[in-house]
Amino acid sequence: MPPTDASTDAGTTPVAADPDDISADTPEPGGRPESSDCQDTLDLRLPDELIALIAEQDTSRPARTGPDDDRREAAGTTPTEAQAPAPAAKASLAKSPDLTAFAEHDLLDDVGEWGPVTTSSGVFQLVPARIDRDLVLISRWMNDPAVAAFWELAGPDEVTERHLRPQLEGDGRSVPCLGVLDGRPMSYWEIYRADLDPLARHYPARPHDTGIHLLIGGVAHRGRGLGTTLLTAVSDLVLDHRPQCARVVAEPDLRNTPSVSAFLSAGFRFSAEVDLPDKRAALMVRDRALRAVLQPSHSQ
């Protein structure tokens, strides 16, 4: 679970959570944050896609028929064709509506087809990353000290490749992208299913919660509010193109005050502090229901 945040400098001071404000959730010691905000505690059920994946894994295991099967499994041998599920069982599995829907469903609604948007800083578009085309550029950004302090992916290109490849070859729950502004790549993004991510263990996730990770690549693009502009644009893209998503979430490192400030200025609210395996993070939430109320700040 990479960090969310390096170099999204908005040039403002982050707003501290009011301890009396019920929207600023606080985590239970050593566990999930206990929230008194009903917006963060409803619809706590496993997503249909995750249920289908569990069912697929369970039904695809060959049934044991006796002690010989136990011995074969302990020895690590591969089942023969005779031990595989019978044709009738395979046909039944193939016709399962839940598993078919999971196999055909795009977990992030075609990020690459969302198209460009016009912002106050120019025309911006998310372009899904490719290792053969983009590895050298992304690796160079990861070796910038301001980025490496939070992403921890400095090193040779192979380090970045090991971070990208599981996403590109996975089931589509995380899509790494270049952020292209007026035709020039200038930022790196990960759009991911927060409800299917390890992050979901640390906050009351809802089905289709969508997360954002971001870094601004070029020094020339930092420190002038561009992070706020792009976070607003990308979270709007998520809400516009993912109708089942009620919330966009992020978890910038609490130490990265420019990043936290950029999220606040982009219409996100501070929900809680959460202890993740690699950092203490600020859980930031942009609610579809509050989209018209928490308008992004354009004062930067």
Rank of each mutant, 00 (worst) to 15 (best):
L107W: 05
F150R: 07
R288M: 10
R32Q: 13
S261E: 05
P116F: 07
L137M: 15
R286W: 11
Q244F: 10
R173I: 04
R72V: 01
D43C: 08
H105Y: 08
A194W: 08
P2R: 12
D70P: 00
S259K: 06
A88K: 08
R45K: 11
V147R: 15
L126T: 02
A24M: 09
P19H: 11
G30K: 10
L44I: 09
C38E: 06
S60Y: 05
R45I: 14
R71E: 10
I138D: 12
R224G: 10
D69R: 01
E190G: 03
D40F: 04
N143Q: 12
E169M: 00
A266F: 01
Q295N: 00
S36I: 01
S235D: 11
D18W: 11
D110P: 00
E161N: 08
G217W: 09
A101S: 10
R206G: 01
G183F: 06
W189D: 01
L153K: 14
G155D: 12
S259G: 03
A129T: 13
C38G: 08
E251T: 05
G172C: 05
S121D: 13
G66N: 07
G183Y: 07
P198D: 08
P62S: 02
N256V: 02
S139R: 10
E158F: 10
A205Q: 03
V260H: 03
F263G: 02
A103W: 11
D132A: 15
R280S: 12
P176Y: 05
D48H: 11
I51S: 15
T65G: 13
D20Y: 06
N256Q: 01
S259M: 06
T13Y: 10
S120I: 02
G217M: 08
P277G: 05
